[in-house]
């Protein structure tokens, strides 16, 4: 029983990390309808920023979010203006944005390789290796914080999207761009804002996972695939879907790891992914829950 509870706890905490990483990707897809293949690489940028803020200026990764989030927000704005915007509204937008973001991902990886070499870099904070014992369940402090922050981010985003005027505009643009334009909404502004927030959020995820994982130039590649699986599983564009998708993948991987083998854990989560694609291609939360 204790093992069972531990599996659930570990799975949920892992799912929280996955969800946190995927939220930004889903936001961008849901509103602008572009697939950002450089998503994982922005996570890497966020992790490096956190690493250097910690090692050079002793800034705690959680405090670093206050700096990294706005920095990546600005980076997101600039990237949107320079790379994404020129491609929108033209023929083959989907293909072109995929290619452009993939190219951008390579540029970021190689820049990181050139600037910081491919060394694995890790930080040790006062939470590293620590955990809280609740009734025999060991909850990793770093992962618990990541989960809490993920839930807070989700709630704040939900509130902003559902209960503010700006949120209503974002939803309007995501549902029907033409109608939104006719209503006088500045679609471009909403697009650039959404893209910037999406990138800012993945940067924030980079801060939160830095006490848990090592950073190296290609760290984003793994998380990229995972983030895509999660948002497609939860429902592309369905913002709450990222949270559900993340938790499901986290739980499946942990259960499969214990019941079958660690090597097969990913096989099970990808199998589930395939099944969902066949049975409910729009994802678990599909259209109904779309914001």
């Amino acid at each position: 029983m204790e093992t069972f509870l531990q599996i659930i706890a570990s799975g949920i905490l892992l799912g929280g990390i996955y969800a946190l990483i995927s939220v930004g990707l889903n936001l961008i897809f849901g509103v602008i309808k572009i697939v950002n293949l450089a998503h994982g690489d922005f996570l890497m940028v966020g992790m490096y920023l956190t690493f250097f803020l910690f090692t050079l200026y002793k800034i705690n990764p959680y405090t670093a979010t206050l700096l990294v989030f706005p920095i990546l927000l600005v980076v997101g704005l600039v990237i949107f203006r320079l790379i994404i915007k020129p491609l929108l509204g033209k023929s083959e937008t989907e293909v072109n944005t995929i290619l452009a973001s993939a190219g951008l991902g390579y540029v970021l990886q190689n820049l990181a390789l050139m600037l910081w070499k491919s060394d694995f870099r890790a930080i040790e904070t006062n939470l590293t290796g620590k955990s809280i014992n609740i009734g025999g369940m060991m909850l990793s402090s770093g992962r618990l914080w990541a989960f809490i922050i993920c839930v807070v981010v989700a709630l704040v985003l939900y509130y902003l999207l559902m209960y503010t005027k700006l949120g209503a505009q974002v939803r309007a643009v995501s549902q029907d761009t033409d109608a939104a334009t006719l209503m006088g909404i500045n679609v471009n502004m909403i697009y650039s804002l959404t893209f910037a927030v999406g990138i800012g959020l993945v940067g924030l995820a980079g801060c939160i996972i830095m006490p848990i994982f090592n950073v190296y130039p290609t760290v984003g590649t793994y998380f990229n695939t995972l983030a895509f699986v999660i948002v497609v599983l939860g429902g592309l564009g369905s913002f709450t879907g990222a949270l559900v998708g993340g938790l499901i993948i986290g739980l499946v991987e942990t259960f499969a790891g214990v019941m079958a083998s660690a090597e097969l854990a990913q096989v099970f989560s990808l199998l589930l992914f395939l099944i969902i694609l066949f049975v409910k291609p729009e994802g678990i939360l599909g259209k109904a829950a779309r914001v």
């Binding site: 892992l14 990390i17 083998s261 660690a262």
Partner: peptide, 20 residues
């Protein structure tokens, strides 16, 4: 006697088994 992927981002399942 168990294998895992070196790219894994979570080893909690294998550690739970070791604990048991």
């Amino acid at each position: 006697n168990e294998a895992y992927s070196a790219k894994a981002v979570d080893l909690s399942s294998i550690i739970m088994k070791l604990k048991a």
